[in-house]
Design a binder for these strands. Structure first.
Lengths: 121, 121, 121, 121
DNA sequence: GTGGTCTAGACCACC
DNA sequence: GTGGTCTAGACCACA
């Protein structure tokens, strides 16, 4: 796993995002055991506390469940994962459309613009 | 003008965004004189220092030009404004497509999803 | 017997509570032989060490007596059991009243509130 | 303010509880500015990080709102405060009744017991 | 060995 | 001066 961080946002947030993405994509399947805090921290080259901050957020989001002594696992509740994935996709599109609308793109023009960008990518 | 800020990002950045938008949309036409920092700060209910920082950014972006004596004006270079508008639109779409691709949406599926979101908005 | 644990508190404490309850209610009558640690541990799906710790606490509370050769039995001293039951009840009520008082419930109001909660349960 | 902690639970949780109680009781009225993290930490004799952990929880509970630069204030949403107070009271009573029921107290007997305890307090 | 907590001290952005 | 973040290092309960 390639960890890369920018300094415009807290590292723990970026960790949360990247781990969340792995869960949403199924790279960490539901129920799978997650590596320990110390191990992940070593991999990512951050302080264990920082990694733990990220894991706590992951738990708060309901994507990971922690048993006090036996490490954490990805949630078994697939609906939570799917809901998170859908929410992320919808948020991205909504933000995009919001900006385009601000710039004067009507619905049809916005769609055409997206299509165009998609093609000569 | 309705100024509203969230506290998840620096206020000066949000000011920059909103002022930039007004320029891109032509509400502040090229060459037009911008209100003074103190006046704008009073309107927005922020510290003049904060507004000052936003204006400095606007100058750095090339959208505003400042003469030490006569206040600031919107740039006369229309190409700069158009380029900025295009860049903002492309960035928004690119970010959106990036997220969708991360989540496993192929090009066609992404477009379909955007269309769908656009419809039941 | 249905064993269920939450991970907000040590498992051995929860075992102690549930076993204690069985003794107080008479499900394990005074003088009765308790199942062996290994057997109980298997039932509850926990490590024998954990169950062992719970039993030690039960002994410390005076509710179980252990003879090195013949396993453990529930105490024959009924007064100990009755005292424990009374203490548990009083502690529960005292804690409840403490919280209610903290929140501004006077004696009468507290009682009325308890009555109300009891009814629409 | 008298801060006293026990070592059976995390200090930050105890801080959260005590601050929450002050808010629920109105000692910190809605909208009131809370002392800074460093100041509170000094008062309580704990590390600023520990105090911040507590404040973050208070924010997550919706009882405090934080503006990135101007300190925290008690929420203005009185309904949140009232809901929290009611929830705390109901939880306390429910726990009490649960224990009493486990011990064999029927509804009426439980109420009578509470009344008795309340009197010779 | 696991996660959780706490301390100490430092740095930074923001206003 | 405010809150937020990060590091480093230590301790503890639990299983």
């Amino acid at each position: 796993m390639e960890w890369s961080f920018t300094d415009d946002r807290p590292i723990w947030q970026q960790i949360v995002e990247q781990l969340t993405l792995k869960i949403l994509k199924g790279e960490y399947p539901p129920g799978e055991r997650l590596p320990g805090v110390r191990e992940l921290a070593a991999q990512a080259g951050v302080n264990p506390n920082t990694m733990q901050r990220a894991m706590a957020q992951l738990e708060a989001d309901g994507l990971a469940v922690g048993s006090r002594t036996a490490g954490r696992t990805v949630t078994n509740d697939v609906s939570v994962i799917e809901a998170a994935a859908r929410a992320r996709a919808k948020a991205a599109v909504a933000e995009c459309l919001r900006v385009l609308e601000e710039l004067g793109y009507s619905g049809e023009k916005a769609l055409a613009f997206v299509k165009e960008e998609l093609n000569h990518e």
